[in-house]
């Protein structure tokens, strides 16, 4: 097995080397640039933490579902509709009240977007991966249509809403030169801590984890497996919606058609790397945030941003080869 793992890593490194080299940048230079882009300056740190924030919250969302045995590929769609809901409310209710109400609306919207996949999984046995992918597409199309239609900012050509009033945003905690850190990051940390406590301390968390590990045994143990499955999906959707609200109130200050660069897979990666321990969502979100920021920095050197997808995919595959192996069959 260890030899096989070495093969996998060598093959992955070779692939990265090849795609980077094809762009004309020597791979060692690219690696150096990525690292310094993510951690080499206050600006780099600012961007890394900014990229990590949605991954922290979405990671907690996908982690929750994963514990219940669900692949919530739909976190992306839930994030997008959450963002739209937050922007809509924030545009109508200004001030801190708007932030609070908008966040609640985002959680509700995220939950609503998870309802159908959760219900189909729990009561119809339809695989959540397919249904959440479908909901992502519908969510992307619907929000784009709204942002380009009734919600479009006056005089704007692009599909985007007007900007929120400055009073309806989340302030920075630290603002030191080029370095900034928004409250959203701490809210993300709280989301992870709450998730961790939920699983280690509460009866509901116990039942959720039991359902995810062995739903049949859970049934015999008096757990309402269908309700637990649906509830896990709804909560996961609400947390993804929260991520959308934070993105609106802390970063974008509006909703637009390119709201998510495709966080769905990143969030799945963050949750997988956490390996069943909610606390590990924090370092793995930071890692993925750094990768996103590093590849962003690289794109200035002419290495396309696609590198991020390649790296994420490889990190997840190598990690999964170590951790998410199926038990070998006997005989």
């Amino acid at each position: 097995m260890n030899l096989k793992l070495v093969w996998l890593i060598v093959a992955g490194a070779g692939l990265v080397w090849a795609v980077v080299a094809s762009t004309g940048t020597p791979p060692p230079d690219a690696l150096r640039e990525m690292f310094s882009g993510a951690f080499g300056s206050p600006q780099g740190w600012r961007e890394t933490l900014k990229e990590s924030t949605p991954l922290l919250v979405l990671g907690a969302s996908v982690f929750l579902a994963l514990k219940a045995g669900l692949f919530n590929i739909g976190a992306d769609g839930q994030f997008v509709v959450g963002g739209l809901a937050a922007a809509v409310v924030g545009l109508r209710v200004t001030g801190p009240g708007g932030v609070v109400l908008g966040t609640l609306a985002a959680c509700l919207a995220g939950s609503a977007w998870a309802l159908l996949p959760g219900w189909i999984k729990a009561y119809r046995g339809g695989h959540e991966v397919i249904t959440t992918i479908m909901m992502n597409n519908v969510g992307r199309l619907a929000t784009t249509a709204l942002a380009a239609g009734v919600l479009r900012a006056p005089g704007q050509q692009n599909a985007e809403t007007p900007l929120l009033d400055a009073s309806t945003t989340l302030p920075n905690v630290v603002q030191d030169g080029a370095f900034r850190l928004n409250w959203a990051f701490f809210i993300g940390l709280v989301a992870v801590v709450v998730t961790a406590l939920f699983f280690s301390r509460t009866v509901a968390g116990f039942e959720t984890a039991a359902t995810g590990s062995n739903s049949r045994a859970s049934l015999f143990a008096g757990i309402d497996v269908r309700r637990t499955t649906l509830a896990a999906m709804l909560v996961s959707g609400a947390v993804a919606g929260l991520a959308g609200a934070l993105q609106v109130f802390a970063v974008k200050h509006q909703f637009n058609a390119d709201f998510s660069p495709g966080y769905g897979f990143d969030a799945l990666g963050v949750a997988l790397l956490a390996a069943g321990q909610a606390w590990f969502v924090i370092p793995s979100a930071l890692l993925f945030g750094a990768l996103a920021r590093g590849t962003s920095a690289l794109s200035i050197m002419g290495v396309p941003k696609g590198l991020n997808g390649v790296l994420l995919g490889l990190v997840v595959l190598v990690f999964a080869a170590v951790r998410y192996r199926k038990e070998a069959a006997n005989g």
């Binding site: 984890a209 039991a210 590990s213 062995n214 049949r216 045994a217 859970s218 049934l219 015999f220």
Partner: peptide, 14 residues
């Protein structure tokens, strides 16, 4: 005490 210990009785990974 369920019929299928592995599937219905215990959670292997816990």
């Amino acid at each position: 005490i369920p019929e299928d210990r592995h599937e219905e009785g215990v959670i292997d990974d816990h």
